[in-house]
Amino acid sequence: MKRETLEEKLYTVKFKADTESHLVVKEAKNCVECGNAHGRPCLTFCPANVYEWEGVEEGLAVRYEGCLECGACRIGCPYDNIEWRYPKGALGLTYRIG
């Protein structure tokens, strides 16, 4: 099979996005410090590439709409910097196969 991009992978998942993010960065300055201290691991381990570093001014972008709700960022962030909830009701992702 041809090498696939993450976008192609996420295209196979059914999402019904909540109107507000269930993932909230607690302290913007932690993410700044995290760069040198830990290399911002959430940018790479997140299986849906939800987080993107936009620079010291803009901080960490959270594209929560494509979150696979695995919980890794809650545990893997060295600063415990993600406030992590479930999307409301039956919103968020719905696996059709699993």
Binding site: M1, E4, E8, K9, L10, T12, V13, P47, A48, L68, C70, G71, A72, I75, Y95, R96, I97, G98
Partner: peptide
């Protein structure tokens, strides 16, 4: 692995702990 999945269609991508 490649010959075992060759020609397949990617259906659903999932992640879990």
């Amino acid at each position: 692995v490649a010959p075992l999945i060759e020609g397949g269609v990617a259906e659903e991508y999932t992640a879990h702990l």
